[in-house]
Design a protein around this nucleic acid. Structure first.
Length: 425
DNA sequence: TCTGGGGTCCTAGGACCC
DNA sequence: TCTGGGGTCCTAGGACCC
């Protein structure tokens, strides 16, 4: 069987190279050619690596304590993550990309798909180069550009562009020879479980997956598996999601800097997370109808018993009122808390979100609602102006000794972002 | 007391993504 | 000593209904 790519579709995937590392490098010229690594919250794992760090053998997702030796030996520069900074730079990159196509899907903090169907075949590679150059010039962030007829293939192209000097790859001709050398596990949408299944059935590269029978994929996987196969054949199945669709759920959770035993401290953290989540959905003009609270001990600790539990509480009426949500969350926490465990993480999920304009009338609280709305607005405004949690509630605690570890922060404050020296790259 | 088939809706958990 | 956080979608199975 053979499939030809007869689609006129053109979609580009622009991916920032080692994004978090690139952000840190922007403000620290000294580390340009040094191995650099950015750690997750709590300085837990490695989540971004410079090329030099990759070469040394530091792996993605590796716990920091396991690579400490390598870090020391090779003078690797370590940074705690600074999401405020990365978010700011991300917005700048996306703004530049919007200048190249109005059909854009911001896929993650460091990636976007843009539709380039309107660009002629003969000019597309030049166009890709122009995108890279402008993003680099205007934001200082290096990117790779992969272009092809489907999102899945442009992901493949991007993978190859990353290793190419030009940083741009248009995958149109000789697709099969490229796919033949593309590992099954590197395909977008093929994770640990699927690649295991495919390999067991003798499918080891992207070409072999492309040529598999439709009936077999549908039988052995699900619709997503089938879509991936179609996309490898150049048939678009996964649409560009251009309009900014709203979140369906909102989760705020953190691991503790050190293990927590007491209900009191769990209350503090759940309150803090709940306040943050409530603020997030208010910013998006949403309300929630269900609150999930979860707590767990460390799954890695073999010396202590594992405990993990969650509870979901439905609200009688959708709300985004901090006090109401916190009250409900704490009630939930008290139901699942068990004495005698060393908790490692706690969090909250707000689900069944909807637009706050989708009015839901409650005859019992018509006047109170307006009052609390004004209060919530005042809180959000103050927090935005004077820093997160400037106004909080007593329950959130003041000492917060359970809070995150961030021992390697670059301490770049985005509030004074524009005052920082500009660096010409 | 026994019997059937088909539909919807919801939820928990799994798999995947960055 | 030290192992992140925030999402989406799909499916199986249960509850419920006629």
């Amino acid at each position: 069987m053979s499939f030809t790519n007869n689609s006129k579709n053109k979609v580009a995937l622009i991916d920032c190279n080692s994004f978090y590392v690139s952000c840190e490098r922007l403000f620290n010229p000294k580390i340009q050619s040094m191995p650099v690594v950015v750690l997750s919250n709590n300085d837990g794992c490695v989540i971004s690596r410079s090329t030099e760090a990759k070469k040394i053998g530091i792996k993605m997702g590796e716990p920091y304590f396991k690579v400490k030796e390598l870090v020391k030996k090779n003078n690797v520069q370590i940074f705690s993550s600074n999401y405020a900074l990365y978010g700011d730079l991300s917005r700048r990159v996306m703004k530049v990309l919007k200048g190249f196509s109005d059909k854009i899907e911001i896929y993650s903090i460091d990636e976007a798909f843009i539709d380039l169907t309107h660009i002629k075949d003969s000019q597309i590679e030049e166009y890709g180069k122009k995108i890279r150059e402008r993003v680099l010039k205007w934001t200082g962030i290096p990117t790779s550009v992969g272009i092809s007829s489907t999102k899945t293939l442009s992901k493949v192209a991007n993978h190859i562009a990353k290793k190419d000097k030009t940083g741009v790859m248009y995958l149109k001709k000789n697709i099969d020879s490229v796919l033949k050398n593309f590992d099954i596990a590197d395909i977008w949408g093929v994770g640990k479980q699927l690649s295991k299944l495919y390999k067991k059935n003798g499918i080891n590269n992207a070409l072999e997956l492309k040529n598999i029978s439709n009936t077999w994929v549908k039988k052995s996987t699900n619709v997503l598996g089938a879509k991936t196969v179609m996309e490898l054949r150049g048939i678009p199945c996964i649409d560009l999601e251009t309009e900014d669709t709203k979140r369906k759920s909102c989760c705020v959770s953190r691991s503790f800097g050190k293990k927590v035993e007491s209900l009191e401290k769990l209350r503090e953290s759940i309150t803090t997370h709940c306040l943050n989540a409530a603020e997030k959905i208010r910013i998006d003009k949403q309300t929630t109808r269900a609150i999930t609270v979860f707590i767990r001990t460390s799954p890695f600790d073999r010396n202590r018993k594992y405990y993990s539990n969650s509870i979901t509480i439905e609200l009688p009426v959708s709300s985004n009122n901090s006090f109401e949500l916190v009250k409900t969350a704490i009630k939930g926490l008290e139901k699942i808390y068990k004495y005698g465990y060393f908790y490692q993480k706690a969090g909250i999920i707000l689900s069944k979100l909807k637009e706050s304009s989708e009015k839901e009338f409650n005859l019992l609280t018509p006047i109170l609602e307006n009052k609390s709305k004004t209060l919530m607005k005042a809180i959000d405004f103050t927090n935005a102006k004077y820093g997160r949690n400037a106004i909080s509630i007593a329950q959130a605690g003041i000492k917060n000794d359970w809070k995150m570890r961030r021992e390697h922060s670059s301490r770049i404050d985005t509030a004074s972002f524009d005052l920082l020296p500009k660096i010409n790259v």
